[in-house]
Design a protein around this nucleic acid. Structure first.
Lengths: 249, 249
DNA sequence: CAGTGGTCTAGACCACAGG
DNA sequence: CTGTGGTCTAGACCACTGG
């Protein structure tokens, strides 16, 4: 095998002197972003990728395992390596940390209250990392859990990444899967900032609770595989029968 | 090297047919729990451990890297592998997710309101996984952040694991480090359940806020390295100038 | 300089899935 | 049966630390 400093076939252009396994990670991620491999597709075997990239199988393995830990890929012994899909229960609850206090949870039902396209105000523009007055999609939803109104969401999306969303016949309940299949945007990381607030009149009416009830408010910033901010949302949520669950380890 | 089915020197007693690297993980963790290696100590090199355990260096490496990811160990190239200590800024904020909205945070100041030893009521006993009426330590604290009262904590500890705590001259601000150094209990995982509530009169008085203000309430269950529940705490916290920060990825 | 962890390789064998 | 990922080994070389 060509054993020169650049004996591999990865895009080592530029000055990125990263370890080979990191280069493999980036390269594989890039190929997914470019849709060479789509969600659900099976990747070539470790040996095939190794020869394709000009590195050893162990190096490919290390990269694929890291991406599996990050939930970009899924691997099954005897089957193969696949591009992760945001489908199924585990993926559903991965970014939905609301848990019923006692009984087992139903699936949440989402109800679209409005969908408009507006110029971003300063605050939203900053959160989405776009210029002020850029067109953004504003989606307001209400979710029902165990038969009662549970939470309200104001969702902001950069229109440039979601062009045509206003023509979609229906906005499904599972938004992140929808982003992935219809706009090739895979959610990779989210950050929630949580506060306690009192319900204002509008929210209280929509949730059918008393004005002044305590609500959890969390603002979420969501990044895609290629580290672009693709969503900002503000959620208000009653927590008398549910809690927001966080694990540190 | 002895290449029999049990050619290694790990305690493969019982019926635990785990991969070697998992056995190494468990074994190393156990040695830390038993204080053969104390926080801050340097472990033997990978090759020394490999020969000690009767496995290859690569297998030891895999186990040590996993434990490093779990923050049980820290590794530094050229230096060695060390048992992690709950000291320094990163460890301080690892389990303290409260962040000031705008300005950079001060270190939190803790004030002990009371420390008593009581028989556990049913609810606390269940949370600590002990029998009802078992003796538990009840520690109440108030924390100040950026010059204002910020949060109240009711902390419950199983007395059997914290015997003698009532004779400690002082309870330091950094509780988890205190558990580690004085009681050989290293915090490994926590789980927070978050709700929004209204401040009752007692809490409002202690926080110098109005009765009925919204507060974040989180109940935390904490496990040590050997998976025992070592703490249960109920925190009430104002969130008008701070937020609780959560990352999913 | 010697000793440590970090990267990379090559190859053996096992466990599992599907035809 | 073949092909996949999972485990384990052995060894080479690099990068960093401290004396």
């Amino acid at each position: 095998m060509a054993d020169t400093e650049f004996g591999n076939k990865l895009g080592t252009s530029g000055l990125a002197f990263l370890p080979l396994y990191k280069q493999v990670e980036k390269h594989v991620t890039q190929l997914i972003v470019e849709q060479r491999w789509k969600p659900g597709d099976m990747l070539p075997s470790e040996f095939q990728l190794a020869s394709e990239f000009g590195v050893s199988q162990g190096t490919v393995r290390k990269a694929l395992n890291t991406l599996t830990d990050e939930k970009v890929l899924t691997r099954k012994q005897g089957l193969g390596t696949f591009v992760a899909e945001h489908t199924g229960m585990p993926a559903l609850y991965r970014f939905f940390p609301l848990v019923a206090d006692n009984h087992s949870p139903e699936l949440p039902i989402s109800e679209v209250l409005s969908l408009t396209i507006e110029p971003a105000n300063k605050s939203i523009a900053k959160e989405l990392d776009v210029k002020a007055k850029t067109k953004v999609v504003v989606l307001k939803r209400r979710r029902t859990l165990n038969g009662e109104y549970c939470l309200l969401e104001d969702i902001y999306l950069p229109y440039s990444a979601f062009t045509g969303i206003e023509n979609e016949p229906e906005i499904p309940h599972t938004l992140y899967h929808f982003y992935q299949t219809n706009f090739n945007l895979t959610v990779h990381k989210t950050e929630d900032k949580i506060k306690a607030i009192l319900a204002d009149e509008a929210d209280a009416d929509l949730l059918a609770i008393e004005h002044g009830s305590p609500l959890l408010m969390f603002t979420r910033s969501t990044k895609s595989l290629n580290d672009q901010i693709i969503e900002y949302r503000i959620t208000r949520c009653r927590s008398d029968h549910y809690h927001y669950l966080v694990n540190f380890d």
